[in-house]
Design a binder for these strands. Sequence first.
DNA 1: CAACCTAAGTATCAATTTAGAACCTAGGTA
DNA 2: TACCTAGGTTCTAAATTGATACTTAGGTTG
Lengths: 153, 153
Amino acid sequence: MKNKNIRKNSPVPLKECGVFSAADLVGDKWTLLILREAFYGIVRFDDIRVDLNIPRSVLTNRLKKLVANNIMYREPYREDNSRTRYLYMLTPQGASLAPVIIALMQWGDHYIKKGNSPLTLLHKESGEQLKVAIVRENAEDVSLTDISININE
Amino acid sequence: MKNKNIRKNSPVPLKECGVFSAADLVGDKWTLLILREAFYGIVRFDDIRVDLNIPRSVLTNRLKKLVANNIMYREPYREDNSRTRYLYMLTPQGASLAPVIIALMQWGDHYIKKGNSPLTLLHKESGEQLKVAIVRENAEDVSLTDISININE
DNA sequence: CAACCTAAGTATCAATTTAGAACCTAGGTA
DNA sequence: TACCTAGGTTCTAAATTGATACTTAGGTTG
């Protein structure tokens, strides 16, 4: 794929390209960070807002778009002795973005943070460290439910 | 990692998070698409501009930022009987974003294009199909130079 | 039951960013 | 010498953002 060959145009028309569709839905700084929050389990409007320091109106719009596109869903819930609140959770389609978010994290930790990764993803059963990578189709993936987060130091 | 546990805040402060750093540099629709072009080998200003239909001023700014952050580099070159031109190519750091772009492509093709992937990535030697996935640390990655693109249909 | 509290929004507006178009320019070709 | 063209810059209107203030609907408390 890495290419000394210079092309004038894409082998795939832009509108048919998955990168284009995906970038249109989640290719935006705040949206990517909101997805990060969702993977961490930070799923209430105000918790996300405070944790990311994102303007309310921007958060509202991003969540609306994510819900409208079946990447997240809004669910009422209540803790004991507390009023009803809403959770913004990942749908299966949203959860499938995990490789994107983890690949970004891996790249950011390695190249920008110079290898000082603040957390490591581990395989729950074996404790082995995990990564996102380009692999053969038949390689065994680790499912999201089998991942545990380890905070370094 | 998928989490019924609700947290109020991130286990990792935002500024130390690789997703944050990465999203700051490449978390933007046009930037992601420019990287797509680079992986395809579309690396001249005007070719990128026409292929993406991106405004000149936006393309200029995005390329400046990518070059300033060592994700792409600008290289003069000339074909025979033609004047000097410039190529915007991926640095090793930029090429390391391949899993991000391919993961987006995979997700977009599967969920938005409903499985009609216009192209498939193949392992050059074995012809096996490739994917981006969360795998064990010791799983064997396929390097960018070993990938060939197959256009479906 | 009235007053109040709080999560989850709307509303408003200045400041920034974008899209689109016109213009510029340097090196090479005719 | 005149012109062509890739690779920009400049300009402006329109859209988006960030910051702050305001609203609302349920639940709890006096």
